[in-house]
Amino acid sequence: MSRMKTTSLSWELQSQTESPLAPPADTLEQLAGDEWALQEGGGKNMPPPADLLRRTSERGGRPLLLEYRIPTMTEDMARNALLGFVHSKCCYGNKAAGELVIQDLRQVTVYRYRLETFHESRLSEWTFQPFTNNLVDGPQNGAPPRLWDIQVQAPPMFQDDVKKFRVPHSSLVKECHKCQGRGRYKCSVCHGAGRMRCVTCSGARHRTKQQKRCQMCSGTGRKRCSTCSGRGNKICMTCQGEKKLLHFIQLIITWKNKVFEFVSEHELNFPGELLRKVNGENVFKDENILVYPITDFPKPEISLASQRAITEHSTTFASTSRILQQRQTIELIPITEVHYQYAGKKYAYYVYGLENKVYALDYPERYCCGCTII
């Protein structure tokens, strides 16, 4: 009797794919407030209100000009830097580094300007989960708060992060749209029968050659469906068998640190991108909610870069995000061009950054050892 009931129920259920699907937008009520209007095809990004932007634009404090000294490069420091560089390369010999004769050290300083803008954006979207209890914080408890009125704890400044929150008073309970509130759906493999044709005997109940009863299906020609364990139906993956779903608006807050970087010009035969990977001596720091462009730095291109960076970030984030903090710095990066002679020929290499890294394009003692650089 029980088996007949189960089979009858399984045929009433519709066969469904197993992946959870979002409900049609027209199945959910509109909540109070324009910013909670449902959007077809995904979430809704809300810009911060004008009064919030005005509050964050208030400035206090002054930029800080730091004390610094330009590091001096000596012959011993230049040679030791090259020896360390050679030892890190499997295809470089150390004889030339030990015997070369340094003829000239030419020190050059370049400046690296960096603007960091730590900003916050907010996105709202409808989502759902199986309804497992009777606690529903819905519109009956009041109107949902405005997107930017929801108070959250921000991460440490200039650190990227993403957090998700349930918007208060936005919850709605609805019948599962995937299984129509049944909690189960017909097995798509056995089509609700609970049993399938035996693959060993192909449903013939015995093996053709031996004419013996098939041991795999005990001579019945059919086996229990392994997908649904013979029940003919499976638990709905969307509601997890609960028959109902709790729909609510999810607030997704994204904090990101946008970086603008500029390195002043130099006349050396040196790849500028290498300077992005080293540290320099801090000479200027300005940190506030919003910083002002630098106007009187001795290197005019640094001042122009500051103006361009601040304008670019302001234009990019003003209408979509809230700027929480900005920081602009200037670093002095030392570069030393080392001219030397080895085996009667002249060469050059560069020592750069506070780490004394080396760039030696034409080092004279290089071999092909078949190593692979990853």
Results as ranks from 00 to 15, higher is better:
110 V>N: 00
186 K>A: 13
72 T>D: 11
56 T>V: 14
28 L>N: 03
331 E>H: 12
203 G>W: 00
251 L>Y: 05
85 F>G: 06
303 S>E: 12
104 D>M: 11
256 K>F: 07
98 G>E: 15
371 C>T: 07
130 P>R: 07
39 Q>H: 08
351 V>C: 00
323 I>D: 06
235 I>N: 07
139 P>V: 09
132 T>D: 11
274 L>P: 01
321 S>F: 06
362 D>H: 12
157 M>F: 10
297 F>V: 01
283 V>E: 08
328 Q>M: 05
10 S>K: 01
111 Y>Q: 15
299 K>I: 15
326 Q>P: 03
291 V>D: 01
114 R>M: 11
331 E>T: 06
82 L>D: 10
315 T>F: 13
142 G>I: 10
196 M>V: 15
67 E>W: 02
273 E>W: 10
106 R>F: 09
55 R>K: 15
126 W>S: 02
258 K>N: 14
97 A>G: 12
43 G>T: 02
8 S>T: 12
151 Q>E: 09
346 K>C: 07
121 S>E: 13
221 G>P: 11
368 C>D: 15
239 C>D: 09
12 E>D: 14
32 A>G: 09
253 I>N: 00
332 L>T: 02
275 L>F: 06
342 Y>M: 01
102 I>A: 03
362 D>F: 07
213 R>H: 04
8 S>N: 07
232 G>W: 03
95 K>N: 07
359 Y>W: 15
242 E>D: 06
232 G>H: 00
96 A>I: 02
357 K>R: 15
278 V>S: 01
102 I>P: 05
242 E>G: 00
78 A>N: 08
220 T>V: 10
151 Q>I: 05
34 D>Y: 10
356 N>H: 13
30 Q>I: 06
286 D>N: 15
91 C>M: 07
218 S>P: 05
94 N>M: 07
94 N>T: 09
228 C>H: 05
287 E>S: 10
305 A>Q: 07
306 S>T: 04
264 S>L: 04
354 L>R: 12
373 I>C: 10
11 W>I: 14
120 E>V: 00
124 S>N: 13
242 E>P: 00
61 G>Y: 04
61 G>E: 04
352 Y>L: 10
56 T>W: 11
13 L>W: 11
21 L>H: 09
222 R>P: 03
332 L>P: 07
255 W>M: 04
193 A>E: 10
138 G>K: 02
165 F>I: 06
267 E>W: 09
106 R>Q: 15
136 V>E: 05
28 L>S: 04
93 G>D: 05
265 E>S: 14
120 E>H: 05
256 K>L: 14
235 I>C: 12
305 A>K: 10
96 A>P: 03
252 I>S: 11
331 E>S: 13
127 T>C: 03
231 R>H: 15
97 A>C: 08
16 Q>Y: 04
244 K>I: 04
98 G>F: 08
101 V>Y: 00
173 V>W: 02
151 Q>W: 00
251 L>K: 05
199 V>D: 11
96 A>F: 00
133 N>R: 04
118 F>W: 14
357 K>G: 01
16 Q>K: 14
258 K>C: 14
127 T>H: 03
326 Q>I: 09
109 T>H: 08
